[in-house]
Simulated scan of single mutants.
Amino acid sequence: MLDAALIKECADPSLKPVIVEQFVQAVGSDDPLAITVKSGGRLILIPKPKTPEEAIKIVRENIAGSIVRVGLTQIPAGIGLKHASELKVDLVEPCANLRMGTGMFAKILRIVAKWYGDPTSEEVFPQLFDDAINAWRTGKFEGESVFQAEDPGGEVVQRSEVTTDNTGNGEDALAQKPEDANIRIDLKRIEDRM
């Protein structure tokens, strides 16, 4: 769980603190030096860095031809850079990583919201959040690269709280009474028969 002071000081101000926390919980890491390297769809095991300098050295060694995610937000390393030598140690510094990661996630949320027609209802936010999380993980939304995409600007209407279950379905965390809950139908058994 992220420290409230870190969120207040470092996170993108366009995101509510609870959304920042849920974003990091969904895609991030508790370890600011965490590095994930994937190549050809496979996870590459790397030694755990002990210092920020060691972490950046590992990122530089693996950035060519691999997808490297770094820090609390597991931000993709190297976005917008021309050479690995441009990577800075602040990529793994908690505040800088949270600032960059939440800024990029806020942009992705705006891209998704624009595709949805910029809805003004809070009820749509769980689906927007799920689609933005999926876009963060894959780097794509509707076939377009979200990390290099232009920011459409604007605001996204956010719920006070959104939870995501293991299947990636948004759920209204504010529904307190059974009659207020979303309708759920488990289609898994039908899928298994096909």
Rank of each mutant, 00 (worst) to 15 (best):
Ser29Ile: 06
Ser29Arg: 11
Ser29Asn: 14
Asp31His: 04
Pro32Ile: 13
Leu33His: 03
Leu33Cys: 03
Ser39Gly: 14
Gly41Met: 14
Leu45Cys: 00
Leu45Lys: 15
Pro47Asn: 08
Pro47Glu: 12
Pro47Lys: 14
Lys48Tyr: 01
Pro49Lys: 10
Lys50Leu: 12
Thr51Glu: 08
Thr51Trp: 01
Glu54Thr: 02
Ile58Arg: 05
Arg60Lys: 15
Ala64Lys: 15
Ala64Ile: 14
Ser66Cys: 11
Val68Arg: 12
Val68His: 07
Val70Thr: 13
Gly71Lys: 09
Gly71Leu: 08
Gly71Ile: 10
Leu72Ile: 15
Leu72Ser: 08
Ile75Asn: 09
Ile75Phe: 12
Ile79Gln: 15
Ala84Val: 10
Ser85Lys: 15
Ser85Met: 11
Lys88Asp: 14
Lys88Ala: 13
Val89Trp: 02
Leu91Cys: 02
Val92Gly: 05
Val92Glu: 10
Pro94Asp: 11
Pro94Ala: 09
Pro94His: 08
Cys95Asp: 11
Ala96Leu: 01
Ala96Glu: 14
Ala96Gly: 00
Arg99Phe: 01
Met100Phe: 00
Met100Asn: 13
Met100Tyr: 03
Met100Ile: 07
Thr102Ala: 06
Thr102Gly: 02
Gly103Thr: 14
Gly103His: 04
Met104Leu: 14
Ile108Ser: 06
Arg110Gln: 06
Ile111Tyr: 02
Ile111Val: 13
Ile111Gln: 15
Ala113Ser: 15
Ala113Thr: 04
Lys114Ile: 01
Trp115Glu: 15
Tyr116Phe: 12
Gly117Lys: 12
Asp118Met: 11
Pro119Ser: 12
Ser121Tyr: 01
Glu123Arg: 13
Pro126His: 09
Pro126Phe: 04
Gln127Arg: 12
Asp131Arg: 12
Asp131Lys: 11
Asp131Thr: 03
Ile133Pro: 03
Lys140Ala: 03
Gly143Gln: 13
Ser145Cys: 09
Ser145His: 08
Val146Lys: 07
Ala149His: 07
Glu150Cys: 00
Asp151Asn: 13
Pro152Gly: 10
Gly153His: 02
Gly153Ile: 04
Gly153Asn: 05
Val156Cys: 04
Gln158His: 01
Glu161Ile: 12
